[in-house]
Amino acid sequence: MKKPELLLIDDEPMVGQRLKGGLEKLGCAVEICEDPARALDLIRKKNFDIVITDVMMPEISGMQVLEAARTASTQTRVIIITGFATANLAREAMEKGAYDMIAKPFKPADLRKLVVKAAVEMGYSDIKEY
């Protein structure tokens, strides 16, 4: 059974560290990335099913990651996580084709629910919250 490919980008190392295990338990193949520049490279090389990205990062913003992911594949679901959730940012993200946005601080279960929802929509039926 093919696992949904998931990329998580946040310059805060603890975010990836804490979320990785839970997301893998859902049945995803999870890749963690703290450097958005490296993330852009990864996105260009490989089609991820789901990309979870922070917005405010040094040098490269989550919006650029969103654009890159949507350019690489329109199928990719991009979930934005941000500590600076404003209406403007939400509008911009949605216009650029983000799947959803979740404001920091959030519970891991909330993100997992979103990931499950996205994966199910993409046809990965055996993904579910444990």
Binding site: E12, M14, V15, R18, L19, G83, F84, A103, K104, P105, F106, K107, P108
Partner: peptide
């Protein structure tokens, strides 16, 4: 929000 998020997670 970043450290708060870390604490929450």
């Amino acid at each position: 929000n970043n450290p708060l998020n870390n604490i929450m997670l």
